[in-house]
């Protein structure tokens, strides 16, 4: 296992590209929501891209991912095709879940992406289980489990930390601490606001990292994963981040101030990395223009793909309610 991050040209380019893909994809999603192409609840990841990109960069294809309803970033970073993701948001049968799941319920068997869970804290026990399964089957894979600071309020967080520790399971618990669960500020919800510290109560190793710095997140994730493999124990990584936009598309944001949002925007993970790369000469402005053009084309193609997609026939409504076999 490699816990070193080599910041060569190709690697920093990949990190920036991965974050920009999420940012631009979601800017388009926002527009498409306004024009009612996308419906239901949609939660944007604007500001938090460094977390999924940094962590997933440190994963291997054999590893598993469990995420939340705010999972467009994880889905794209993991390599779920943008076309399939956009078609899912459109509710088309070409979507990764045939349009049955939508924004909050992205699943992808090929990349071991186990959702997309719209019950806060719902993914944590599941992640304990995928890690248990991997361990019992003799695989060396880990499960990366993403969840918000709000999920820490739920009993399932505490039960899952204990189970994973007790049974020595390879789970990387990744808390995306964006300081709010909907309108509830962390300090109004938690008596102990240092989330990483909670791990001690379960004999789980932990660290907190600047979640606006993608390189720092990747380094921390690699270190955590190395420790998980070396000691066969779980790890809690708290990524301190912020969502720039509303909780969902129905949120007047009465619970926080504009200056607070502006202060955090200065730490924008995408702009920070881009500025640093340009200043240090690691990436030329022309190259960034090229990346942006490629992404614009990819997003455009994904919209065209979703537009051209088809509706699943209603006769198939009840399909998959009961499975006739376990997919292999």
């Amino acid at each position: 296992m490699n816990d070193k991050v080599h910041l060569d040209h190709e690697h920093v380019r990949d990190l920036l590209t991965a974050m920009l893909r999420i940012r631009r994809f979601e800017e388009k999603c926002f527009e498409l929501y306004q024009s009612e192409k996308i419906r239901g609840f949609m939660h944007l990841y604007d500001g938090e891209e460094a977390v999924s990109v940094g962590v997933i960069e440190a994963l291997e294809p054999k590893d598993a991912i469990v995420a939340t309803y705010r999972e467009h970033g994880q889905a794209l970073a993991r390599g779920i095709e943008m076309n399939a993701l956009m078609a899912e948001l459109y509710g088309k049968q070409e979507g990764c879940c045939r349009g049955r799941g939508g924004s909050m319920h992205v699943f992808d068997r090929a990349t071991r992406f186990y959702g997309g869970n719209a019950i806060v804290g719902g993914g944590l026990p599941l992640a304990v289980g995928t890690a248990l399964g991997d361990k019992m089957l003799g695989r060396s894979a880990i499960t990366a489990c993403f969840f918000g600071d709000g999920a820490v309020d739920e009993g399932s967080f505490h039960e899952s930390m204990n189970l994973a520790s007790l049974w020595k399971l390879p789970v990387l618990f990744v808390c995306e601490n964006n300081l709010y669960s909907m309108g509830m500020a962390l300090e109004r919800a938690e008596a102990e606001t240092h989330i990483a510290r909670k791990a001690a109560g379960y004999s789980v190793a932990s660290a907190a990292v600047d979640g606006m710095d993608v390189v720092a997140v990747e380094v921390a994730a690699r270190r955590a994963i190395a420790q998980i493999h070396a000691t066969s124990t779980p790890y809690l990584l708290e990524c301190q981040t912020y969502r720039f936009r509303a909780h969902s598309m129905f949120d007047a944001q009465l619970y926080r101030t504009k200056p607070e949002i502006e202060t955090w925007r200065k730490k924008d993970p995408v702009r920070q990395l881009q500025a640093w790369l340009e200043q240090s000469g690691m990436l030329h402005a022309d190259e960034i223009t090229g990346i942006e053009a490629d992404i614009a084309a990819e997003v455009g193609a994904a919209v065209a793909f979703a537009e051209a997609g088809t509706w699943e026939p209603v006769e198939e409504l009840e399909r998959f309610t009961i499975m006739d076999r376990v997919p292999q």
Partner: peptide, 8 residues
């Protein structure tokens, strides 16, 4: 009725 899918 609001297209919130199977968990809502």
């Amino acid at each position: 009725g609001l297209q919130l899918a199977a968990q809502h």
